[in-house]
């Protein structure tokens, strides 16, 4: 199963909403990286905007950016991956239930509090009344949404699928868990198609999720894709600054990925959140198209002049491990 990337729309702690993937914004030392948001008035109908919570603006804004970048092409299906979904609105709603003794509840926080709210609002705005789904699987939420999209395209019932990964910062969640990493947030949407968008495009060749996998799962995955590790031009690793999490990546850097392979890190640019691999995928896709990764993302340079075959490897608390194989697709003329 594979898909071709038609366009992306990313709102993140970098200025990616302007399609600027230079990732030049200084993030060092900040415990929280908030998303840099566009002026939504140019993207979202002001009548709709007024009732939207922040995560809805992030999601709908990124989806609309993606559609705009695709020249207005409409998807046949909408799929979203999110770890915490509209958790801030859910808190408001639950608090009001307690405060009012389950009486006289305002409808707006309820509407905004559901896990599928973002996907539903995107569908409502784009007037897409077909397949609509939201996946919530902790650190593998975005990859599960991607898998769902790939399966839809594989079945050929849908030609174009809009798939996104979205999570926003939650003060309550942050205070409860006091994470040992830089916390981030973001919304990334991708228009995937079962046909390449042009002569040069980016292909998502494979997506796989693993729960507490065996030692050699990456080697097995690459073998299934007929891609030995030395064929990879770059590997994006979800290094997040937590020594416990990063030890998993460090072992692979030392023993598995060959010296010729460029090593890229991205969570110091976008922060850690359940669907941060959506940032990683957008960064990989833009870098393949541009012919180079931005300097702030390069952990160790490699041999390839231009990255063509890239692996994105992420794990969440060493339980949910995910792999996405991305490559440049050039049509034979």
């Amino acid at each position: 199963m594979h898909a071709y990337l038609t366009s992306t729309g990313l709102i993140s702690p970098q200025r990616t909403f302007e399609n600027d993937f230079s990732c030049g914004l200084e993030t060092e030392g900040a415990p929280i990286l908030p998303a840099i948001e566009p002026n939504y008035k140019g993207l979202i109908n002001p009548v709709q905007l007024r009732r939207m919570s922040r995560i809805l603006k992030l999601g709908l804004g990124a989806a609309q950016l993606c559609i705009n970048n695709a020249g207005g092409q409409q998807p046949d299906a909408i799929i979203v991956g999110t770890g915490l979904a509209c958790v801030n609105d859910l808190e408001i709603f639950l608090k009001s239930i307690i405060e009012t003794g389950e009486q006289s509840l305002s409808s707006i926080p309820f509407i905004n509090s559901l896990h599928n709210t973002v996907a539903a609002q995107v569908a409502r705005t784009l007037k897409i009344q077909t397949y609509n789904n939201t996946h919530c699987h902790r650190g593998a939420s975005f990859e599960n949404a991607l898998l769902d999209a790939l399966m839809l395209l594989h079945e050929k019932e849908h030609q174009q699928v809009l798939v996104g990964g979205i999570d926003e910062f939650s003060t309550h969640y942050y205070n409860l868990l006091t994470p040992k990493v830089v916390t981030g947030e973001g919304a990334g949407f991708f228009l995937l198609s079962n046909a390449p968008a042009g002569k040069n495009s980016v292909k998502i060749s494979a997506v796989r999720t693993f729960y507490a996998p065996e030692e050699n799962f990456i080697a097995r995955f690459l073998a299934e894709q007929h891609t030995p590790a030395h064929h990879l031009d770059a590997v994006l690793l979800g290094i997040n600054g937590n020594p416990g999490d990063d030890a998993v990546y460090c072992r692979l850097m030392d023993s598995f990925f060959p010296p010729s392979c460029q090593l890229i890190t991205y969570k110091h640019l976008c922060g850690e959140y359940h669907t941060s691999s959506a940032f990683g995928l957008a960064l990989a896709a833009h870098s393949i198209a541009a012919g180079a990764f931005p300097a702030p993302a390069i952990f160790k340079p490699g041999k390839a002049a231009k990255p063509q075959k890239v692996l994105l490897y992420n794990h969440y608390q060493n339980c949910n491990h995910t792999l996405i194989l991305i490559e440049k697709f050039a049509a034979e003329s």
Binding site: R51, S104, L105, S106, S107, I108, I111
Partner: peptide
């Protein structure tokens, strides 16, 4: 109609 619900709530609260 969602605003109507909020206005009814306003009168009540």
């Amino acid at each position: 109609s969602i605003d109507a619900l909020e206005l009814i709530l306003l009168l009540e609260k």
